[in-house]
Computed example of a mutant assay.
Amino acid sequence: MPKATPPTSQPSQPSQPSQPSQPERRPGPGPGLRERKKIKTRQAIRRAALRLFAEQGYEATPVDRIAAAADVSTSTVFRYFPAKEDIVLTDEYDALMAEAIRERPRDEPPTASLRHAVVGLLGPAAGAEREELLARLALVRQVPALRARMSGGLADSGTLLGEALAERSGRAPDDFEVRVAVGAVLGALREAVFHCLDHHHLPTATTASTTRATATRADAMTTAIDRALDLLSRGIPL
């Protein structure tokens, strides 16, 4: 990764107590009833869509059929997902990753913090969401329209990750080094995921996966991500 490692905080006088490497954070209030209903509806639409994509294929599945399977109106689908591609591409993971980075020790290298944030989404604790994430990633790799639209989502991801890294390093989110570091990391993660999809036969729109297979494929993706981030941290030696 390009040199964007945040400096370790040190006391200015020997008599002062050392500063903690990680700020204390108090958990905020959970989502209210209205927000929980929105999350539930969004998840129902996405799960119905993924099920239909697996059965019929992405291109052959219209939005009105997704709406019927999720027991909502077509206008409701478009209210939550402005385009069909967004059903696959949008999620709540960016905010979770940014928060996970903020919770890591400030003196930890950014690549290590990012590794913890990303791999957490692929670990056993993710449960059924892990299989869903793998299926979505496979669809992105297979469908040109999804790959074309993904660039906008990566820009949003970069904004959130840049803000989190900027807080850790005391830099501005639009700092040159922060922007380059985020761009390098996102590019490396994308290529690691695509490489794994190409070589480890992750779940596709027509391939069922068992719990064991999902775990094996998630482990393969974790290994690919580790390799990519390690390559960045070593200055990309070729």
Rank of each mutant, 00 (worst) to 15 (best):
L89C: 04
L89V: 07
E92Q: 02
E92R: 07
E92H: 09
E92S: 05
E92L: 04
Y93D: 00
Y93T: 00
Y93K: 00
D94Q: 06
D94F: 13
L96G: 00
L96S: 01
M97R: 05
M97V: 04
A98N: 03
A98F: 12
E99W: 12
A100T: 13
I101V: 15
I101W: 06
R102E: 07
R102S: 07
E103V: 07
R104Q: 15
R104F: 15
R104G: 11
P105G: 06
P105I: 09
P105Y: 07
R106G: 03
R106P: 01
D107N: 15
E108T: 12
P109G: 03
P110M: 05
T111G: 03
A112E: 12
A112G: 01
A112Q: 14
L114Q: 04
L114Y: 14
L114S: 08
R115K: 10
R115N: 08
H116G: 03
A117V: 02
V118M: 15
V118W: 06
V119D: 04
G120A: 04
L121Y: 05
L121P: 00
L122F: 12
L122H: 03
L122N: 01
G123T: 02
A125M: 13
A125I: 10
A125D: 10
A126L: 03
A126W: 02
A126P: 02
G127A: 00
G127Y: 03
G127H: 09
E129K: 10
R130M: 10
E132M: 02
E132I: 05
L134W: 03
L134M: 11
A135D: 02
R136D: 08
A138V: 02
L139K: 03
L139D: 00
R141T: 05
R141I: 01
Q142E: 10
V143C: 06
P144W: 14
P144H: 11
L146R: 02
R147I: 07
R147A: 14
R149P: 08
M150D: 12
S151L: 15
G152C: 14
G152V: 11
G153Q: 09
L154G: 06
L154I: 11
A155Y: 10
D156Y: 12
G158H: 09
G158D: 05
G158I: 10
T159Q: 11
T159S: 08
T159C: 13
L160I: 07
E163K: 04
A164W: 09
A164N: 12
A164V: 11
A164H: 10
L165Q: 11
L165G: 04
A166E: 00
A166C: 02
E167S: 13
R168E: 06
R168A: 02
S169T: 12
R171F: 14
A172T: 11
A172E: 12
A172G: 06
D174T: 09
D175I: 14
D175R: 08
F176S: 11
F176V: 14
F176W: 14
F176D: 14
V178F: 07
R179H: 05
R179A: 00
V180K: 10
V180A: 07
V180Q: 07
A181F: 15
A181T: 15
A181C: 15
V182I: 10
G183P: 00
G183F: 06
G183W: 03
A184K: 07
V185E: 08
V185G: 00
L186W: 13
L186S: 01
G187H: 09
G187R: 11
G187P: 06
L189M: 11
R190D: 12
A192R: 00
A192L: 05
A192F: 10
A192C: 02
V193P: 00
F194M: 05
F194Q: 01
F194E: 01
